[in-house]
Amino acid sequence: MQTTQRKPDEQNTPYRPLIPTQKEIRVLLLRAGRLEDPIRCELHHASLLHEPYPRFETVSYVWGDPHQKITIEVDGIATPVGASAERVLRRFRLVDTDRTAWIDALCINQTDLEERSLQVALMADIYSKATHNLIWLGEDDGFSAQARVTIDAIVDDARNETEDLVAFRRTVFDEHEGEQFSG
Score class of each variant (00 low, 15 high):
A46G: 12
S47W: 02
S47E: 01
L48F: 00
L49K: 14
L49F: 03
H50S: 07
H50W: 08
E51Q: 04
E51I: 02
E51M: 07
P52F: 00
P52S: 00
Y53F: 15
P54K: 07
P54A: 07
F56D: 14
F56M: 10
F56W: 11
F56I: 05
E57K: 14
E57H: 13
E57S: 14
E57G: 12
T58M: 01
T58S: 08
T58W: 00
T58C: 01
T58I: 01
V59P: 10
V59M: 15
V59T: 09
V59G: 12
S60P: 12
S60Y: 06
S60Q: 05
Y61T: 10
Y61V: 04
Y61H: 14
Y61N: 05
V62Y: 03
V62A: 13
V62P: 03
W63M: 13
W63P: 15
W63E: 09
G64C: 06
G64V: 05
G64Q: 09
D65N: 15
D65V: 06
P66I: 01
P66N: 13
H67F: 14
H67I: 06
Q68T: 08
K69F: 07
I70S: 12
T71I: 13
T71G: 03
T71E: 13
T71V: 14
I72E: 10
I72C: 11
I72A: 05
E73G: 12
V74M: 01
D75M: 07
D75H: 04
G76T: 00
G76Y: 07
I77H: 11
I77D: 06
A78W: 12
A78Y: 09
A78T: 08
A78H: 13
P80I: 10
P80V: 10
P80H: 04
V81R: 12
G82L: 04
G82Y: 04
A83Y: 12
A85G: 15
A85V: 06
A85I: 09
A85R: 08
E86D: 12
E86N: 11
R87D: 03
R87C: 13
